[in-house]
Amino acid sequence: MKLVADNIYHVYNQGNNKETIFRDHEDYISFLKRVRKRVFPIAEILNYCLMPNHYHFLIYTNQKSIESIQLGLLESQVLKNSFRLINSSFSIEFNNKYTRTGSLFRQKTKFKLLENKKDNYPFICFNYIHQNPLKAGLVKKMEDWKYSSFQDYLGIREGTLCNFELAEKLIDIHKDDFYNTSYSVINEKLADKLY
């Protein structure tokens, strides 16, 4: 699928065979540094969550994101290639650190266009991403998970990876009811359509 500018995408990948891809704090930070280097300059990150065996990003594309790039005989797009490079370089570091071999991630990072305005998929996906650690039982409150943008949105941490103003505009997020809305129950049938 070709990415199109000025659209919201749910971007996600998982450890190969659901293997753990982040074993310690440094792994999470190392991955986020790669995202800052490769994605931050070419797309708007609306929110994210890194989980022990997978990751989620909500991304708004622009013209830089969708530029065509030649990779040998294959043609790709800059944003897709950025995630390929992030996964590849992180895998090399991870394999060296933990003396392992083989692929760490599933072969292709998924990009799901969230275009259904009627069912408000961008809003549902935004909250779904932040709810991941809570639903997985990793924390009792979303604000306790360090590896998502939830703490940034609450003002607990001063993260600069996400474009808060754009998220408020595109997804209709309001600071005054952000916390309560974030904890609202998501219809599982709608959540299945985020993938």
Rank of each mutant, 00 (worst) to 15 (best):
T101M: 06
I86R: 08
F111Y: 13
I69R: 02
S182I: 07
P122R: 07
H174C: 12
R36E: 09
V78R: 15
E143G: 15
S184I: 06
I186Q: 08
K97D: 11
S103H: 15
E158W: 04
I59N: 12
R100I: 05
R38H: 14
A43M: 05
L170A: 07
I21S: 01
G159W: 03
C49F: 03
H54A: 07
A5E: 15
A167I: 05
S91W: 03
Y12E: 07
G159K: 06
V39H: 01
Q14V: 05
L154M: 13
I21T: 02
N127L: 06
V4S: 09
Y60D: 04
L104V: 15
Q77C: 12
E188I: 08
I66E: 01
L104H: 06
D24M: 01
N87K: 09
Q14F: 01
N127V: 01
D172S: 15
D144G: 02
K118A: 14
H56K: 01
R157I: 14
I129V: 01
N87M: 10
D192N: 11
K110W: 05
I86M: 10
T99F: 00
S76G: 12
K140P: 00
E75C: 09
V139P: 08
L46P: 07
N87A: 08
H56E: 08
E158P: 00
Y12C: 11
P52K: 04
Q151N: 14
Y12D: 02
K2V: 11
F94I: 09
V11I: 14
N17L: 05
L32K: 10
N16E: 07
R36H: 12
W145Y: 11
F94N: 10
K141L: 14
Q14C: 06
V185E: 15
R84T: 11
Q14P: 00
L161E: 09
L134M: 07
P41H: 10
G159F: 06
N127G: 02
L161S: 13
K175N: 14
Q63G: 03
G72H: 03
N13V: 05
R84D: 04
M142V: 13
N95A: 12
